[in-house]
């Protein structure tokens, strides 16, 4: 009996030590859940979720402080993916989903104040003091953060037009009756 207890105790100690060692040795850098959540968020960095960027929102979700339906750019699809990842119930988006858009500076009106440059979270605007500014379309996430600071209101949002290169084949079901 005593021996059995001793063996069990020894086993417990050895395994405990092994586990402890493993937890130190194979420690994961960063928080994997936050990274996974962040990978789903669209990285628009618009702050519409109420957090100063996608990462803070991801952290808030991971901590259970924020709901999963606060990111309008991610849309219903994003909510669905988050729900899948976290094993939660998908719910309707808290906000309005907009078609993808980019900002456009009316270059004739721009006074070169650099305020929009400072506002853009992803460095998508180029320009210098008292020089005309312009937006690099391919880098713009459409977050709208550059609109309010512009003193002459020369920035507008334009929906992104579909091109031959970005066009997608539609889901077949609808087309069935028309095609040969």
């Amino acid at each position: 009996m005593l021996i059995a207890i001793a063996i069990m105790a020894l086993g417990a100690v050895v395994l405990g030590a092994a586990l402890g060692f493993a937890s130190v040795k194979f420690k994961v850098e960063g928080d994997p859940l936050v990274d996974k959540i962040e990978a789903i968020l669209p990285q628009t960095q618009c702050g519409q979720c109420g957090y100063p960027g996608c990462k803070p929102y991801a952290e808030a979700i991971a901590k259970g402080e924020a709901d999963i339906n606060l990111c309008p750019p991610g849309g219903a699809e994003g909510v669905g993916k988050l729900a899948d990842l976290l094993g939660r119930e998908a719910k309707p988006l808290d906000g309005v989903e907009k078609p993808p858009q980019v900002a456009l500076i009316d270059e004739n009106t721009c006074i070169g104040c650099t305020l929009c440059i400072q506002a853009c979270p992803v460095d998508a605007i180029v320009g210098a003091a008292k020089q005309m500014h312009t937006i690099v379309e391919s880098l713009c996430t459409g977050c709208e953060l550059c609109l309010p600071p512009c003193p002459v209101e020369c920035i507008t949002m334009e929906p992104i037009q579909e091109t031959v290169d970005t066009w997608k084949w539609k889901y077949p079901v609808v087309e069935l009756k028309r095609v040969a």
Binding site: P42, Q43, T44, L139, K168, W169
Partner: peptide, 22 residues
Amino acid sequence: AKSEIWARERDKKAADGAKTRF
């Protein structure tokens, strides 16, 4: 399916770029 996958890859690349720049 192929064009959806391509679109997703484009989006993912854009998002990754945006994240890096942010």
